[in-house]
Every structure is written in structure tokens, then in C-alpha cells.
């Protein structure tokens, strides 16, 4: 593992709505940090030796970095789109590699078995071909035309539909998913997974959503997403090996796993290896 390449990235470290003067003691890649609201009402993040870390407040969360980010925090244009509801789902801690948390988020083949009768159900288990690319201009992993039959695709869905997805990995521990929006077929719902790496095998996961849904209560939206993520949590905590293998050979990919294959390749190319294992152990 090398921390160097990932140290200059942005990570979520708290909910903007929960910022207070008492502060929140947390950690980033093994280093204790503190997130507080300063006298001026701005978010302030300090590292273990008291050094002030870069900070952004965006997408409902406070973001920081142990290093010097070379790029601005990735854009989510939908975050500024009128009519969307923004949902802070809240933090969930998982004993897994932050990279495994993202990889699982990119996977649809597990839906019928792990999110049974919600995001998938037997016999509709087939994953049809979809497109995957690393977009060099923005340096992001993209999967498009991902289609899957879902019994209850969203809180706003009534009955089964074939849902279309697009997945985006704009940062090593963040993913944005665009999903068929049942009440507004011309738009995409946005569901994100922002992962705060605490250690190589421990992370705090902050899901966040930007949805078109005027009827479901905020609490119901939160509960729907927490239901899904808590179904994943027990899987994530039982994966072997705990670190994400970046070299081929340890885990056997099929066509359904092309997003994961691209994600691992992209991580390796950038030396994003905090939470990864390189040589098969």
C-alpha cells in the first residue's frame, strides 16, 4: 500500500447539517482529524498536529484532504438543478476496505440475492451487456446502458420495472449513480456513495441522494436507502480478502463485472492503492 497518490484526494468527513462548535473527532487514512464549525460559521478541519486541512462544503457534506488536492472536488451538476430533493442519508461504519465499498456499489449482479424483492429478484438475474469506459478527458470510470429488472426500484416505484443505470467513479472512494426516475422519465435520479477511509479496512460511508420525488416523505427516502445499504453491509464485512485485489487472478470476473474490472484498472493506473492489495496473498 502507498498512501501518496490517494492523500491528495477529497474525502467526506461529516454532514454539513451536523456541523457544530463542539466538533466531531474522526479520522482520515489513519490520522485523527477534527471537524468543527468555526467562529465565522465555516467548516474547519484540523489534522493530528493541529495543521489546518483543506475544506469544502458540498453535496450535503464537509470534505477534506490530508494532502494538497490537485483538482477541485468533482462536479455533480444535478446538485444545482431546481426541483430535486437532497437527502442526507447519514453515516454507516463498515469494517471493510473503502475500495470494496465502492466496488460493491458498482455491482448489479448481487441485487436478486442481497436486495431481494427490492432491487432484484430471481429469476430475473441476467446481467445484459453494457458499456464501460475510462473517460480520459475527465479521468473518470463510466458505465452506461446498464439495465436490470427491479421489483421496487425506488420508494416512488410501484411494481416492477426494468431500470437503467449509469455509474460514475470520479474519485477513488466516491461513486455517483444515475438511475431511471420513476416519476420523471426524462430525468435521472442521482444516488451517491461517498466513502471516508478511516483505515485500509475500515470506513465511514455517507450515502447521499438528489431525487425528483415530491410525494415520498424525507424519512421514507432515508429509510429506503438505509435499507439497501445495510443489506450490503453484512456482505462487505465478510469479503475475503479484506483488501481489494488489484492484480488479476484472485477473483474471477465475468462480463457482468466489467465496471469492477475498469475500476480496479483505473485504481492501479493511478496508484490508488490505499485499501488494495497488489500481489495475490
Amino acid at each position: 500500500m502507498t498512501m501518496q497518490a490517494m492523500i491528495d484526494e477529497w474525502y467526506p468527513v461529516g454532514l454539513a447539517s451536523e456541523l457544530d462548535q463542539t466538533g466531531r473527532a474522526t479520522a482520515l487514512m489513519g490520522e485523527p482529524i477534527e471537524v468543527v464549525c468555526d467562529e465565522n460559521g465555516d467548516a474547519k478541519v484540523t489534522g493530528s498536529n493541529g495543521r489546518v486541512l483543506p475544506v469544502r462544503v458540498r453535496y450535503g457534506h464537509v470534505w477534506s484532504s490530508l494532502g494538497a488536492p490537485k483538482k477541485e472536488l468533482f462536479p455533480i451538476p444535478e446538485a444545482d438543478q431546481p426541483g430535486r430533493r437532497f437527502v442526507d442519508v447519514g453515516v454507516v461504519r463498515v469494517r471493510c476496505s473503502p475500495l470494496r465499498a465502492i466496488e460493491n456499489f458498482l455491482d448489479i449482479a448481487h441485487f436478486p440475492f442481497v436486495h431481494t424483492d427490492i432491487l432484484g429478484a430471481e429469476p430475473h438475474t441476467e446481467v445484459q451487456n453494457y458499456k464501460v469506459e475510462i473517460r480520459e478527458d475527465v479521468d473518470e470510470v463510466w458505465a452506461t446502458q446498464v439495465k436490470f429488472y427491479q421489483p421496487q426500484a425506488a420508494k416512488s416505484a410501484s411494481g416492477g420495472i426494468t431500470t437503467e443505470y449509469m455509474y460514475r467513479v470520479p474519485a477513488p472512494t466516491c461513486s455517483v449513480l444515475y438511475k431511471t426516475c420513476p416519476p420523471r422519465p426524462s430525468e435521472w435520479d442521482v444516488i451517491t456513495l461517498f466513502v471516508q477511509p478511516l483505515a485500509e479496512d475500515l470506513c465511514d460511508v455517507w450515502p447521499w441522494m438528489a431525487l425528483f420525488d415530491d410525494t415520498t416523505s424525507l424519512t421514507d427516502l432515508i429509510h429506503f436507502q438505509q435499507t439497501i445499504f445495510l443489506q450490503d453491509r453484512s456482505i462487505l464485512e465478510n469479503q475475503i480478502p479484506r483488501l481489494l485485489p488489484l492484480d488479476p487472478g484472485m477473483e474471477i470476473p465475468t462480463r457482468a463485472d466489467l465496471t469492477s474490472v475498469a475500476y480496479r484498472r483505473w485504481l492501479k493506473r493511478h496508484n490508488y492503492t490505499y485499501g488494495a492489495q497488489l500481489v495475490a496473498q
Binding site: F113, V114, T116, D117, E122, P123, H124, T125, E126, Q128, Y149, Q226, T227, I228, F229, L230, Q231, R233, S234
Partner: peptide
Amino acid sequence: MPGIHRLHELKPEPHIEAGEA
């Protein structure tokens, strides 16, 4: 409830054809 998975063995294995999903 979340954290308690379905006992998939209670249902027989479905017989599916490729392309039917």
C-alpha cells in the same frame, strides 16, 4: 429486516433461459 438475508433455499432454483431476464 436489513442485516437478515432471505433464506433463498426456501424457494426452488428458478429455471431461466438466457435472454429472458
